[in-house]
Nucleic acid binder design. Structure first.
Lengths: 341, 341
DNA sequence: GCTTCAAATGTTAACGTTAACATCCGGTGA
DNA sequence: TCACCGGATGTTAACGTTAACATTTGAAGC
C-alpha cells in the first residue's frame, strides 16, 4: 500500500445534484431524471433544471453514480509492453470501440514476467473502477501464472493469447493462417525449395508460424529444410540471409517478420543474389513503413485494430463468445515474389 | 448520452466491509482500519480481520472510497492519435510514473480536429474518475479550442504542447534545441552549405525546427537557402532528396525527421551522390530501427519516456511547475556525417 | 361533483466507505 | 478507592447518486 505516500490531490468543491435542485426549485430526483434524459419531465421543468446545471457548473459525480449502479462504464487494460507496434494498434482498436460505447479505458502497467505479479495485478484491478479486464500477456508464463493465481477472477477477463484458458476469453492473431497463406502463395508461384527464417524459440508466434510452414510443405510432399533462427531484428535477418545465400537451390524465403526480411534481402543482395529475380522473399506483419531500393516486400497483414475491437466487445458484450478466437489476416502482395517455371 | 444503449454489464455481488465485519465479529470501522494499515488495531484483531477478508474474498469498492474521499488516484489521458511512435513512448513514461505512485491511467479517445469537441471531452472527463487530466493535443487548433471552450477547467490540466496556455501546464520536446544542435554539429564539422528538408506547414514541430535551423545559420553569418518541404514520409523525403541532389554546392542536409532522411539518402544515392562521402545527412527523432546499406543515420533523440513521466508528475504533483516546460534531447552521432576541410 | 387515471414530481432508503466523535477497558498515580 | 489516561474499538453521519415507491396535479368520463 503506497497510498499513504501519494499526495492528497484534493479536488475542487463539487456541485452536486442537491445544489442544482435547490437552484432550480425541484427535487434531486428530478435533476437526476434530467441528467439521465428521462422522458418523464415536463419540457418547462427540464429547461429550468438544465439552466440551473449550466449556471452552477454541475457535472455528475462518477463515484456517486458508480456506487449506486455498481457499474463503471470502464474496462481495465493490463499491458506489459505498450510500445510494440501490434500492441499499439490493438490499443487503438480498443479505444475506438470503447469510445463508441461510451466506455473509458483504464490502463495499468503489468510489470514484466514475474507470474506471481498477476495476483498483485488482479488484486489491484479488483479495487479499480472497471467492469471487465483485458490482459495483454505477451509471455506464456503470464498465461500460466494467471491460471495458477487467479482461479476464479471476479471480473470478466479477456486476454490476447493464442492458448485457450478456462477462465479467460482468449483472442489472438491467427499465426498459422499467416504462415500457411504465405507458403501457399510461394507454392502457387512455382516455388518448391522454400526456406524459412523463424523467430526466437520462446516466442509462441514464431513457433506457430514455423509449424504452419512445416505442415504446409509436408502436405505438398515437400521436405522442409531446417529453418534459420533469428531474433526478429533486421540484423539477425542479415545473418540468416547470409546463410541462405550460400545455398543456390533455395528460390524462396519465408521470413517470420518484416524487419528480418529486410535484413535477409540486404544480405542476399550483398551476396550477389537479387530479389526477386534470383530469390523471392516474403515477410510477415506488414510493418514496414518504407521500401529499400524500391523493392516492396510482399507480406501478411493482421488487422490489429479489429483484434483490439473484438477484445473490447468480448469484454463488455453480453454474448459469451468462444473461449478461443483466432483472427486471420490477409496476404499483401507486392513486388518481392516472382513466378518461376 | 449513449448510456442507455450500452449493455448493463452487472458485476458479481460484491463483498463489502460490513460482510467482513460480521464475519470477523468487529465493526466496519475496524475493518476499514485494517484495510488502510492503520496502526490503531491490535495485532490479534488485525489477524482475525485479514483472515475474514481472505475467506470472504473481499476487495475494496473503488466507488465507495472515491465517493468518501473525493479523490480517484487516477489521471485521465486524452489522446487523439495513440499510434505515433513518440506518443507511445510518452504513454510508456506516463504509465511507469503512474505505477510508481499507485495511480491508474484512464484513456479517452479525443476524436480528431474539431475544436468544439474539446468541450465534449472536458465534459465527459469531468464525469470520469480522474483527479487530473493530461491532454495530448497534436494540432494547434485543439490548443486554441481548449482556451475558447474551457475557460476554467475543473481539474488540473497538463498538455503536450509547445505553446504556453493560461490554464494549462504545457510540456513538450524542445524542437528548437533539436534543430539548433544538429545544425551546430554540421557547422562544427566544417559544413557551410547546409540545406534543410522540413515538414508540413501546419506542423508546429516542423516550423520550430525550421526556424531554429534558420536562426543558427544566420547567427553564423550564413545564408539559409530555401528549405524543401516534405510531409514526414520517406517518399516525400525521396522527392526532396532528388531536388537537393541537383545542387552540387550542398554538402550537408538537415532533415526534419528520420523517415524523410531515409528517402533523402536513397535519392542522393540514386543521383550518384554518396552519403556521407559526398553529402552529409542528419535526421531527427532517432526513430529508425534498422540501417539502410550499413549507413547509420546521425540523428537527435528525445527522451519521450521522460517527457511522459514529467507530464504525469506535473499532473499529480503538489508543486506548480512553470507554465511551459521544454525538454531538450541529445544528438546521436552515427556515420552519416563526414568532416570537410 | 365524484371517481379514475396518468403524468409529473417528491420522498425514502440504500450503495460502501471513512472522518469525527463516543465509548469501553485496563492500568497508573494520588 | 477513584479519577484519569491512552489505546482499542464502536457509532454516527455524510459523500452523490438512483430505484422504488408515494404523493400531487390536472383532466377525462360518468
Amino acid at each position: 500500500m503506497d497510498r499513504a505516500s501519494s499526495s492528497p490531490t484534493p479536488r475542487q468543491p463539487k456541485v452536486s445534484l442537491a445544489d442544482v435542485a435547490r437552484l432550480a426549485g425541484v427535487s434531486t430526483q428530478t435533476v437526476s431524471r434530467v441528467a439521465n434524459d428521462s422522458p418523464a419531465v415536463r419540457p418547462e421543468t427540464r429547461e429550468r433544471v438544465l439552466d440551473a446545471m449550466r449556471r452552477s457548473g454541475y457535472s455528475p459525480s462518477f463515484a456517486g453514480r458508480s456506487l449506486k449502479l455498481n457499474r463503471y462504464q470502464a474496462v481495465g487494460l493490463a499491458m506489459s509492453n505498450v510500445v510494440s507496434t501490434g500492441n499499439v494498434k490493438r490499443l487503438g482498436g480498443i479505444m475506438e470501440a470503447a469510445a463508441q460505447r461510451g466506455y473509458a479505458i483504464t490502463l495499468v502497467q503489468a510489470t514484466d514476467d514475474a507470474p506471481e505479479q498477476i495476483e498483485e495485478i488482479e488484486r489491484r484491478m479488483a479495487a479499480l473502477p472497471v467492469d471487465a479486464m483485458i490482459y495483454n500477456l505477451n509471455r506464456r508464463s503470464l498465461v500460466d501464472g494467471f491460471l495458477a493465481f487467479v482461479p476464479q477472477p471476479r471480473l470478466r477477463c479477456v486476454a490476447f493469447s493464442s492458448i485457450a484458458h478456462p477462465h479467460l476469453a482468449c483472442i489472438d492473431a491467427d499465426q498459422a493462417h499467416c504462415a500457411r497463406s504465405l507458403t501457399e502463395l510461394l507454392l502457387a508461384r512455382g516455388h518448391r525449395s522454400i526456406r524459412m527464417v523463424t523467430g526466437p524459440e520462446d516466442s509462441i508466434a514464431a513457433c506457430q508460424r514455423e509449424q504452419a510452414w512445416r505442415e504446409t510443405m509436408v502436405e505438398r510432399g515437400l521436405d522442409p529444410s531446417e529453418p534459420v533462427r533469428g531474433d526478429w531484428s533486421a540484423t539477425s535477418g542479415y545473418e540468416a540471409g547470409s546463410v541462405i545465400a550460400d545455398d543456390p537451390s533455395t528460390t524462396a524465403v519465408l521470413v517470420a517478420n518484416d524487419d528480418m526480411a529486410m535484413g535477409v534481402i540486404e544480405a542476399l543482395r550483398d551476396h550477389g543474389r537479387h530479389v526477386p529475380h534470383d530469390v523471392s522473399v516474403v515477410g510477415a506483419d506488414d510493418s514496414l513503413k518504407w521500401s529499400v531500393a524500391k523493392l516492396e516486400l510482399t507480406s501478411y497483414a493482421f488487422d490489429e485494430r479489429e483484434i483490439g475491437r473484438l477484445a473490447f466487445e468480448t469484454a463488455v458484450g453480453d454474448a459469451q463468445g468462444p473461449a478461443l478466437m483466432l483472427v486471420p489476416g490477409t496476404v499483401v502482395e507486392r513486388s518481392s515474389v516472382r513466378d518461376i517455371s
